[in-house]
């Protein structure tokens, strides 16, 4: 088992009233799964993803990740945990504009204090694997959306995470680019990486092994 959510609640206080963003979420994810989270706008998909990614806190419930109880961890340990095991992919790619492709890939490794030679090898490896060696010295603004997302995924993978969280990874791409990215995810999943994605598209959701539907913060 990779992670387990028990009775997770999350709410915001508005005018003396609690507005629930997540309501009684129970979820168990095994290693090697490919899960798609679906639901209309505002149903809490991204919030759930952020909670799983430990970027966002929750108000009630238990969250176990591998051996750790996330709800009991301090901020610092929590960030160490997600740094180690989770990679993020965003709809807007969120590459650093001032850095080249190569430097963008290198960044997480620097933060994890890998040595220079090791970093070079890992970056070269990743460039190779994604077929973007020729683009390594370009800046994000010089790439197409699909290529940028490719770099985004490569950056998420570079430190060998157990889990990839993808928030509408194809939302800004055309259908052909989107298909390529989804094929890539499928391939990664086959190689053993656990993936949780948020998506609007039925077609993309089909790539997953399991679909979770959300409505107003509730799993249905």
């Amino acid at each position: 088992m990779l992670l387990q959510l028990n009775n997770i609640f999350k709410w915001v206080q508005s005018g003396g009233q609690r507005i629930f963003l997540l309501k009684d979420i129970n979820l168990e994810v095994q290693e090697g799964e490919f899960i798609s989270i679906m639901g209309p706008s505002g149903s809490g998909k991204s919030t759930l993803l952020n909670v799983i990614g430990m970027l966002d806190a929750f108000d009630e419930g238990e969250y176990h990740f591998l051996e750790d109880s996330v709800h009991d961890l301090k901020e610092k340990h929590r960030s160490n945990l997600y740094k180690e095991y989770i990679g993020f992919v965003f709809q807007q790619y969120h590459l650093l504009d001032d850095l080249t492709v190569q430097e963008n890939l290198e960044m997480p490794l620097i933060y994890k204090k890998f040595k220079g030679s090791e970093r070079k090898a890992m970056v070269a490896d990743m460039l190779d694997r994604f077929n973007i060696v020729g683009k390594k010295d370009l800046f994000p603004s010089q790439l197409s959306g699909g290529q940028q997302q490719l770099v985004g995924i490569a950056r998420a993978l570079i430190s060998n995470p157990k889990l990839i969280l993808a928030d509408e990874p194809t939302g800004n791409l055309n259908s052909k680019q989107g298909e390529e990215i989804m094929d890539l995810f499928k391939q990664l999943n086959d190689e053993g990486v656990t993936i949780i994605q948020v998506t609007h598209s039925e077609k993309n959701a089909e790539y997953g092994s399991r679909i979770i539907n959300l409505l107003d913060g509730r799993m249905i």
């Binding site: 970027l55 740094k83 993020f88 650093l96 001032d98 997480p108 933060y111």
Partner: peptide
């Protein structure tokens, strides 16, 4: 702001 967010998500510490 955006850059700070990205850096943190990919593992930067507060001090860095």
């Amino acid at each position: 702001t955006k850059e700070i967010g990205v850096r943190k998500v990919i593992g930067a510490s507060v001090s860095s």
